[in-house]
Design a protein around this nucleic acid. Sequence first.
DNA 1: TACGCTGACGACAGCAACTGCCATTACAGC
DNA 2: GCTGTAATGGCAGTTGCTGTCGTCAGCGTA
Lengths: 212, 212
Amino acid sequence: MGRWEPNAPGRLQQAAFELYTERGYDQTTVAEIAASAGLTERTFFRHFADKREVLFEGGDRFRATLVDAVDAVPPSATTLEAVTAGLKAAGSVFPTPQLVRRRQALILANPELQERELIKLASLAASLGEALRRRGMPDTAAELAAETGVAVLRIALTRWIEDPVERPWEVHVSEVMDELRRITAERSGVAHGLKRSMGSGRARAEASAVLG
Amino acid sequence: MGRWEPNAPGRLQQAAFELYTERGYDQTTVAEIAASAGLTERTFFRHFADKREVLFEGGDRFRATLVDAVDAVPPSATTLEAVTAGLKAAGSVFPTPQLVRRRQALILANPELQERELIKLASLAASLGEALRRRGMPDTAAELAAETGVAVLRIALTRWIEDPVERPWEVHVSEVMDELRRITAERSGVAHGLKRSMGSGRARAEASAVLG
DNA sequence: TACGCTGACGACAGCAACTGCCATTACAGC
DNA sequence: GCTGTAATGGCAGTTGCTGTCGTCAGCGTA
């Protein structure tokens, strides 16, 4: 039996998440969060670097899972296959879709939280880029593939959250990755068939949907 | 002659940029910036939303130039061609490479500034996505292409800044875009030959057997 | 038993970012 | 000359965040 209640960081996270969603991020002070967890403001800042960081704790686990999965992909696989495998594996650390939805809604409603989310994703891209360099990719290609992979992650996450029939994470990753291949494989000119007889952008959109 | 010196926002930007680079972002107070421009802290916050925003004023011009260029691309062009045209055109609003280098170094040295840069790029991606939707692309494809385009922008900008022979912006955009096509076109198995030009050179012959 | 060390926390002072409110003053239009 | 407007200053107040010091339980050790 310790002098204080156990798991102070966890209690602070819980309290912060609830207060942020109840009365909004701006309308919540750090002192309120700490009091709600039975602690003081000073202790809050001993456990978290700032008011936003309390919402971004799972990021390291996500990153580690992704990187480990990429490292485990056999070297014979293509870059996009490795990235795809990493993204799919990282989905295992997601909590329930319900919680992810609430969290994303919270972030979407606050520019400050969006900024933090974005720099976390940029850091994730850097780690992914390192993993790809370990597979033998040159620097530029690795960085580009990593940034693109994180773009896929963002789109896939949005679609996963909004999917009315709740198809699994891996399906959305595959779909968005396929969409990426489709976009980048598009060729100009009339010699390739794909764009033949598609004068307007509208027609191209429909064709793209059909070809999906 | 007005009551005050003209162009207060411009003077504040100039003063902020110089102080940030001289003594660092953290070691500079808003009061110092304002005093250096012959104004008060209160006036600073009338012209700029916060301490970081004073460094991110050109963003709207960049965005407008990019979007206009994408809108001007004929509908027969592919998505990547449109994005490439937009990125190349937007390069016209860059100041001298020297200034861009100092600015990027400043941002790279401060996480807070990185966060602001990232949310500006995210906003840029949203605008680019809108422009692509105007071309008839479905939502997911437009967002994905826009995010990918911004990834290309980031990589190309880094390479442009670091290019020892200072080749023009358009060349770097083209190169990174080609790299993107190469990465995404990579196929499992040995029948395609494209990937011969990149990566570790390790045999990927068994990829189709392993990953289907 | 007595002593000291450590680790988690509270209390307090203080700085800087940012906001709201009101006062000031040149300039334009009437 | 009068009045409205726009740009600024002054000032108090809130909040995020930091530095510093004190408190107190648990632990080991002579």
